[in-house]
């Protein structure tokens, strides 16, 4: 409780001192507008910003659905077949590690401007963290549990359905939490690089137009949205993994 109060105090103190500094004219309002100016700007661009945010979140949702589906299924298959895992894992980890931005120009070249490259690039971003986590989780499933299930006569199908999949639920959820951030990041990057709509495009144009208050408002809006999404996933995580304690 005390912690919550202090967190609130921190945020308020930061806002107030920022406002004071801006009003006193210690910083150039062209670059650092006061919070009150940002709030007014939010009202001004509200319609555009929310439309942009909706567009971005829509693309993110599609990209996310793709990367979760592909990441989990590929992770389970590659993780549970020993040979596949040994052969593929260095490649998967390497693909996870390299900056995806390097292929962005090529994706835009191939798919043009618009929704498709954003979805593809967002999905590409989300896919690998999920796949890496799921692969690791499948590899690390307690062997005793598999032996137990076999001794009770489990079929291969039952091994996957009743042992492997429930066992990796926590890792799938951790991957989904990581994945949503990566998907959103990917979509925003495409929108900034070659967008015609969406929040990334809106923010890029505001920056180019030196509209600092509006830009700050838009930035705050996206940040709030992504924090809200992650907190919601955390909540879901707690609910679905209650057995872990």
């Amino acid at each position: 409780m005390q912690v919550r109060v202090l967190q609130l105090v921190t945020v308020l103190a930061a806002l107030v001192s920022w406002e004071v500094v801006a009003r006193a004219g210690w910083v150039d309002p062209l670059f650092v507008p006061a919070p009150s100016a940002v709030a007014r700007a939010l009202l001004r661009i509200g319609g555009t910003a929310f439309a942009g945010l909706g567009d971005t979140l829509g693309k993110t949702a599609v990209a996310y659905a793709l990367s979760v589906t592909l990441g989990v299924s590929a992770g389970v298959v590659v993780g549970s077949v020993r040979l596949l895992r040994d052969v593929m894992s260095p490649y998967v980890i390497a693909l996870y590690g390299i900056p995806k931005i390097l292929v962005l120009p090529w994706i835009v070249l191939l798919l043009g401007y618009g929704t498709t490259p954003a979805v593809v690039y967002g999905a590409l971003h989300g896919l690998f963290p999920i796949m890496v986590l799921v692969m690791g989780a499948v590899r690390d499933v307690d062997r005793t549990l598999v032996t137990v299930a076999r001794s009770f006569g489990a079929t291969t199908w039952q091994l996957y359905w009743k042992v492997l999949l429930p066992a990796i639920v926590p890792s799938v959820l951790a991957g989904m939490r990581l994945g949503i951030m990566f998907c959103l990041l990917g979509v925003l990057v495409v929108e900034m690089f070659a967008g015609v709509r969406g929040m990334g495009y809106v923010m890029g144009s505001l920056a180019n137009g030196f509209q600092a208050p509006e830009l700050f408002a838009a930035t705050g809006l996206v940040s709030a949205a992504s924090i809200a999404i992650v907190l919601a996933l955390d909540h879901l995580n707690d609910k679905l993994s209650h057995w872990r304690g």
């Binding site: 670059f31 951030m181 990566f182 959103l184 990041l185 925003l188 990057v189 900034m192 990334g200 923010m203 890029g204 505001l206 920056a207 030196f210 600092a212 830009l215 700050f216 930035t219 996206v222 940040s223 992504s226 924090i227 992650v230 907190l231």
Partner: peptide, 14 residues
């Protein structure tokens, strides 16, 4: 938890 790229336009402006 915020995708860092949201700060980039502001940084370019700064």
């Amino acid at each position: 938890a915020v995708p860092a790229v949201v700060w980039y336009p502001s940084l370019m402006l700064f």
